[in-house]
């Protein structure tokens, strides 16, 4: 074979020799199944990673929305919630002691007061 610097003919001849050898090396027979298996595995792993990312983002979004809402609700807690049972019980006992009647009647009075107090607050 002559040197490439000899002229365009030898240049073309050399390229033709090189071109003819292009399919001499071939992939091994197990490359295909190996590649497909790795691709499936990688895709599955990617799917799990995507799902985990979505769940994390969703949780963060839910947290960022609910926390201010809960804080806002807790600031209105006194208006929204009624009297505690212990307070009612104490008021009922005070009525019963004051008017000398049974505790059940004291409870009725205590609830009536609490309801009036709440209605007054709403107005």
């Amino acid at each position: 074979m002559s040197k490439v610097t000899d002229g365009p003919e030898s240049f073309e001849q050399l390229e033709a020799t090189l071109f003819a050898a292009r399919d001499y090396v071939t992939p091994s027979s197990d490359l295909r199944p190996r590649t497909l298996e790795q691709a499936r595995h990688a895709t599955r792993a990617q799917g799990w990673a995507n799902r985990l990312t979505l769940i994390t983002l969703g949780s963060m979004l839910l947290w960022s929305v609910t926390m201010p809402l809960l804080r806002e609700l807790s600031s209105h807690r006194d208006k929204l919630s009624g009297p505690f049972p212990a307070e009612i019980e104490r008021a009922a006992q005070d009525y019963a002691d004051l008017h000398r009647y049974e505790a059940q009647w004291g409870l009725v009075e205590a609830f009536r007061d609490a309801r009036q107090l709440r209605m007054g607050g709403e107005r």
Binding site: V25, P27, S28, L31, R34, T35, Q38, A39, R40, H41, A42, T43, A45, Q46
Partner: peptide
């Protein structure tokens, strides 16, 4: 093969690239 000078390494490269392409 031309770059790695070794068929085993060359196939590893191709396998890795095609798997990456399949996931993205």
């Amino acid at each position: 093969v031309t770059i790695t000078r070794n068929q085993h390494d060359a196939e590893d490269a191709v396998q890795s690239v095609l798997a990456r392409v399949a996931s993205a």
